[in-house]
Design a protein around this nucleic acid. Structure first.
Length: 450
RNA sequence: GUGGCCAUAGCUCAGUUGGUUAGAGCAUCAGAUUGUGGUUCUGAGGGUCGUGGGUUCGAGCCCCAUUGGCCACCCCA
């Protein structure tokens, strides 16, 4: 006998969990639709060469690869070199995110799509990462992206989506942090080492964790001079309100035209005057975000600090994403929600509403052969009205039927015993309060199963 | 990919310097109670102690390997 198990980093979702997850999905989907985004689904697997090289060196290692079918060993012997061997063994992989498959789709359908194309996508992705809290090997992303529009109003609206979804979910204390990649590029320019952009951003992204001295050491270690580090220091000391930060940036980075452009963009997104927010986005110059295809605004959504979860969403603008697939010049901007982490956060803060957790409202209890058909008929009438109802199928003791209702979390039972059958009446009991009342059969359809 | 901690009943965990038949609570099932659950009482079932080796007269306990979980790094949702 094989001991039943599932692969590391994957999970089963029981009925109660699926309901709560669906509540999150619904909230996000409804908002995406409200903002005019259209649904898209792509296959779980992509061609391996669609994915490799898009996520950086680290990312490539985390791609789940799919072994080719057929006579692997015989095939392998035909290979002339290791590169050929690799393709003989594996040419498909599980999708790593939703953005690259989207870019691939846009290029394939470029002649059919009405640009700008606004799509949303909510599907699982897979990463061969080491699991821990808030990190799984199979998890869902919910992305909304706009491709083929340079308007900064897209950025504004995407920030509004974050704001609306988190507000709807009752997630108080969430933070949406924004930065602009051009500002970071400007910093690297100012130092005179634009090729060090990635090293610099990775280091300053760690400010929260390792402190300003830690960042300094890491930068020196990565090959910056003391003078360079001093410039970064000034950059990291930028503080105050959003407007104050932007002003300080303007002064510090005035030598870089790129940076000025980024500051300008950020200023527009934050001060367009057209949007309203429950929790205004916060400028965070240390926000870097790993994916190296971002070129404009970058954004990260963070859980309330009380729950140590970190990022529950992220996104940004990437010029020329589709260029990788032979369609240059199309700009995209998008955001992503990490449903699995949002679930963990809502669960920890107990923010799931009761409505997201119940299924069947009414269970009919009966005494056996005589009352069962009558109960069944009442049940159908309730279903007609759109009330989720069930009847206990087996002839069992009342005791057992009650326990079943209780365990399932069904709020109401309707009892159809001998006396009710004779009187043509029904006893309705609300299990949580224990209140029970007898009504005539005709009143059933008017009863409020709240 | 690197390192640390952990793994005993369906769940949460006890288990003495290695010593006879591995325990508890909750959960499950049956009954006490003649149409009424979530409270009470009685009883029952359920474990090759994650897996595979080793040390020993003897291993849940010690050693090695392996798998999985948690955590930190890396990276990220």
């Amino acid at each position: 006998m094989i001991k039943p198990s599932i692969p590391k980093g994957t999970r089963d979702f029981g009925p109660a969990v699926v309901r709560k997850r669906n509540y999150i999905f619904q909230t996000i989907r409804e908002t995406f639709e409200l903002f005019g985004f259209q649904p898209l689904e792509t296959p779980a697997m992509e061609n391996l060469n669609t994915l490799t090289g898009k996520y950086g060196e680290e990312g490539d290692k985390l791609i789940f690869k799919i072994l080719n079918n057929g006579e692997i060993l015989g095939q392998a012997q035909l290979a002339k070199d290791s590169k050929e061997l690799a393709t003989l063994l594996c040419e498909k992989a599980l999708r790593y995110d939703l953005t690259i498959p989207f870019a691939r789709y846009v290029v394939m359908k470029q002649h059919e799509l009405a640009l700008p194309f606004k799509r949303y996508q909510m599907q699982p992705v897979w990463r061969a990462d080491n699991p821990q809290r808030g990190r799984y090997r199979e998890f869902y992303q919910c992305d909304a992206d706009v491709v083929g529009s340079n308007s900064l109003l897209n950025e504004v609206e995407l920030l509004m989506i974050y704001d609306r979804v988190f507000s709807k979910l009752g997630l108080q204390g969430y933070e949406v942090r924004v930065n602009n990649r051009k500002i970071l590029s400007g910093l690297a320019e100012l130092i005179g080492k634009p090729e060090m952009l990635t090293d610099i951003t990775i280091s300053i992204d760690k400010l929260d964790k390792i402190g300003i001295e830690g960042v300094q050491q890491e930068l020196l270690h990565r090959g910056l001079s003391h003078q360079d580090v001093e410039i970064v220091n000034n950059f990291l000391r930028i503080d105050g309100s959003n407007d104050e930060k932007l002003q300080q940036l303007q002064v510090l980075l005035q030598a870089s035209a790129t940076a000025q452009k980024g500051i300008e963009e950020l200023a527009f997104v934050l001060n367009s005057g057209m949007a309203t927010f429950n929790a205004a986005p916060i400028v965070d110059v240390t926000l870097a975000r790993g994916l190296n295809y971002y070129t404009g605004m970058i954004v990260e959504a963070k859980a309330p600090p009380a729950v140590k979860m970190g990022s529950i969403g992220g996104g940004g603008r990437y010029d020329d994403l589709t260029g990788l697939f032979g369609l240059p010049g199309l700009s995209g901007v998008g955001i992503s929600f990490g449903v699995d982490r949002i679930y963990d956060v809502l669960e920890e803060l107990q923010l799931f509403p009761a409505a997201a957790q119940q299924s069947t409202r009414v269970l009919f209890l009966h005494m056996g052969a005589e009352s069962l058909p009558v109960a069944f008929n009442y049940m159908m009438q309730l279903r007609e009205k759109g009330i989720a109802a069930e009847v206990f199928h087996e002839a069992a003791k009342m005791d057992k039927q009650f326990k079943y209702a209780d365990k399932r979390g069904i709020p109401y039972v309707v009892i159809l015993g001998e006396s009710e059958l004779q009187e043509n009446s029904l006893s309705i009991k609300h299990l949580q309060t224990g209140q029970q009342q007898k009504i005539s059969a005709g009143e059933l359809l008017n009863f409020q199963f709240v």
